[in-house]
Design a protein around this nucleic acid. Structure first.
Lengths: 352, 352
DNA sequence: CTGAAAGCGCTTACAG
DNA sequence: CTGAAAGCGCTTACAG
């Protein structure tokens, strides 16, 4: 069986297209199916032929064409992550975890960002993501992400990173989260133990009926016999933290502020400095996330480390389980860990 | 014209696989090639059939299979971005720009991160990226990225985001960059105009023979008749900035510090605070990037806005030009813009 | 353990 | 302007 060389030269020069499974087969003296078997690690290949084929594969630098593979067996070995924001720490760290896990499993990872919360943008993003043919992970920390989550067709293998659910999630829901309630409870308790009469809270937007982060903060206060003050509502950025900080700094009764994330805490710090309040002498400030920069804020920020990278890895594991026909039950990931730094301390004694 | 339902139901229920080009063709009463023509916007289709086919496409919610398409014409309509870091502002903002442009052009975007600078990791990353079948954009701000850049096979359509080159780049090199020299020159001149006797520089690692950022800083000093001090070498993170800050704070002759990026500046600020130096009273500090948080540092950071999003868009444009057989000449992107905030000011008069 | 056949869903010439 | 043929590079049964 002759074939005309279609631009492939074994010498490696002037290679106009890359080697195919048939090139390998011909050179190794086997059929192309056998080559397919060795690249897919099928058991039923004799060691001798396996070795011979593998040698040719290595020599040629043959790499199977992913598109052809996907077409033939409907399996893309890819995951695309859908998110509404590429600049927030939690989102990025989650993406990083997904990417790590995907790389280890030889999956490729795509990314599509949802332009806005409008339903046409959400739908367009989902279609783009699906077109790739692989599985989906949606980062659904915010409203837009939640919208997307609900719009993903039933048949698509999917997992989602979400806020801690307000009530037990439906069995089999492919959700992963960080235990927000425990994180907030522990941080609040720590502040209380420092001697603060109460702890004020600047909240992130919640996608749930009742934020677990807020609930954890409240429950710690109540257990200490304290009636929780009204939480302030921020968004995700430092500016909204700054605004909340300005407001709180004017109330001399405020001695401890817990912030929904480190970025908000940065804004609060900047407001307190502007208002000439001492930190932590007058006011203690704590955040959530432990993003790398927070150790260098002024003062260094006390915060709770949230393991978004592990969250991303779990999302990947969840979605690949689905790909394999298994169901992983919804579950929390990791253990939030308080990191005490210089922005918190005991309140000054005699404030009048 | 009857058809056996192969799991496709027009009613939309129990759809076991999605519609193919042949389903559309059959229902519209045309050949599948004609359907191919209308989805590819070929000119030679009569308005009447085009409309009829389009209607069926919409009704069925038909979306062409990307893998099949890629296999048939060798064109993936995808770009994968290769980078060594997913947490640095400049990298992310560049990715954001690529994603934006890609979305607008209906390209999908993949991401592969290079695990380390070891040549096996670099090579593995490149192979993963290539396997996807599309074009490549490598973010080559650091050594690892530069390594990757050099290892990408000639035949792969590619663009790269790089540091400003030290000398004129080879004609046709698919490189985009931000004008580092102008940025550093202007920032230094600004500090000098404030009355500082000199400006110290904390440098990012450079991948070039001679960093343009450093060169810009030097040339501004020389034009003012000042002999440039030795720059300090940092890496990309706040910790190295902190270390540099501690060192510089001990020299009472230091009144102005220009930092390679905002993160380094954050570290310098934290060191100066720790050493009880007033900012900007004793020392002025400026950064590069203008990342969103820098306006909330203590004090708010003077910095130079670098348009990485535009850089990402240019990279995408460059690589799609290559895909179309055109060559874009290597070029700088955007105009760095000084953003004056509270961390810089005139030096105090009588320091002894 | 290995090979010949058929097909995944498209596109690209080639006819008409 | 439109259709019949061939093929992109694989994998999945089915024989042997």
């Amino acid at each position: 069986m002759q074939r005309v060389d279609a631009g492939l030269s074994v010498s490696g020069t002037a290679r106009s297209r890359s080697a195919s499974i048939r090139d390998v087969a011909r050179i190794a003296g086997v059929s192309h199916q056998t080559v397919s078997r060795v690249i897919n690690r099928h058991a039923k290949v004799s060691p001798a032929t396996r070795e011979r084929v593998q040698k040719v594969i290595d020599e040629l630098g043959f790499r199977p064409n992913a598109s052809a593979r996907a077409l033939a067996n409907g399996d893309t070995q890819s995951v695309t992550v859908l998110m509404s924001d590429t600049t927030r720490y939690g989102y990025l760290a989650t993406l990083t975890g997904i990417e790590e896990a995907a790389r280890a499993a030889s999956f490729s990872v795509g990314i599509v960002v949802i332009e806005s919360g409008s339903s046409s943008h959400v739908r367009a993003a989902i279609e783009n993501a699906i077109d790739t043919g692989g599985a989906l992970v949606v980062v659904a920390f915010d409203k837009t992400g939640q919208l997307a989550l609900r719009e993903v067709p039933e048949r698509i293998p999917m997992a989602a990173a979400v806020e801690s659910p307000a009530s037990a999630p439906p069995a089999g829901a492919p959700w992963c989260w960080i235990d927000d309630e425990a994180a907030a409870r522990d941080a609040t308790r720590y502040l209380l133990e420092l001697g603060h009469p109460t702890v004020h809270y600047v909240a992130l937007p919640s996608t749930t009926r009742s934020s677990r982060r807020t609930a954890g903060w409240r429950s710690a206060l109540r257990r200490a016999g304290i009636d929780p003050p009204t939480p302030l509502q921020a968004d995700w950025g430092a500016l909204s933290g700054h605004e909340a900080g300005v407001f709180l700094s004017r109330d001399p009764g405020v001695s401890a502020i817990l912030c929904g994330n480190d970025e908000i805490a940065l804004g609060v710090l900047s407001a307190l400095h502007a208002e000439r309040r001492k930190i932590p002498g007058d006011v203690s400030v704590a955040g959530f996330d432990d993003e790398p920069q927070s150790a260098f804020y002024t003062p260094a920020l006390t915060t709770t480390k949230l393991d978004f990278v592990a969250l991303g890895r779990s999302c990947f594991a969840t979605v690949t389980a689905r790909l394999g026909g298994e169901h992983v039950e919804p579950h929390p990931v990791g253990t939030p860990e308080l990191v005490v730094r210089a922005s918190t301390g005991s309140p000054r004694r005699a404030r009048s």
